[in-house]
Amino acid sequence: MKPAPFVYHAPTSLGAALMLKAEHGDEAKFLAGGQSLIPAMNFRIANPALLVDVNKLAALDYIHVVAGELRIGALTRVQRLEHDPLVRAHWPLLPETVPHIAHPQIRNRSTVGGSLAHADPAAELPVILTALGGRLRLQSSTGERWVGADDFFVSLFTTAIATDEMLVEVAIPAAPARTGTAFMEVARRHGDYAMLGVAVVVTLDAAGACSAARLIFLNAGDRPMNAQRAAAALLGQLPGSAAIEAAASSATEELEPMGSVHATPAYQRHLARVLARRALRLAVQRAN
């Protein structure tokens, strides 16, 4: 239950951190909040030869808005998202979701970038970022690129981050007018990994018909699971009970729940249908 020996570096500049990663590749791991990495190292599931502690890169700890778009530095602690006034006012899906993420003692350390780069399909932030149509900025010692959330999460604990890259920033666009959002999950105990969860984003047009919709599920496959066909079927419709029920039912067919000791895949699909129905109703109500 103790980590195996490793070499430890805590660079004070992003450039130095990226150089170390470029030099050592897969043998080096970035240590951000460490709330998943350290337990994995305690169990010796993770066994990095070199740890690059990025906690001294204070320049990556920020929340601000650029041209209406929310920008979050990768080192921003998850707990900050719950109380930041800008986030609360314009991206309420984030503060609504944060209390579901583990416990305050974990959220005080865990970082936005670390959680996204870890890419646990049962984690909340990857689902939220996908639902909100976010983008991620990946930087290496030779350049940078932006990747959309839809392309970022590849599979179980696997992302589009290349060996020499680091996730440095997340961008979330402003929501169009008359957009409502909702997040719901079912966990056996508060703070546990959820058996299933869903984030919903609905935009209505002037006539009250659905002009955009996203339903992204948590712990329903090997990555944030996007029920695209169910969402597409809502477009142009007045989102009443029948349309919502139809979308919630069909969404379950787009999921690949893996089941666990706590929930069979059939039960996860049941949760998906019920939660999607409730979350869609709430999001439509909020959009109105």
């Binding site: 416990h103 003692q105 974990i106």
Partner: peptide, 29 residues
């Protein structure tokens, strides 16, 4: 538990409660 589940090792780090078993001593610098 040494895996962040039980909370027995909770301390205040710069005033914030954290799990001491999920941090390295070198990070207290």
């Amino acid at each position: 538990c040494e895996q962040g589940a039980c909370g027995a090792c909770t301390i205040l780090f710069d005033g914030q409660p954290v799990r001491a078993c999920l941090m390295l001593a070198v990070q207290a610098d």
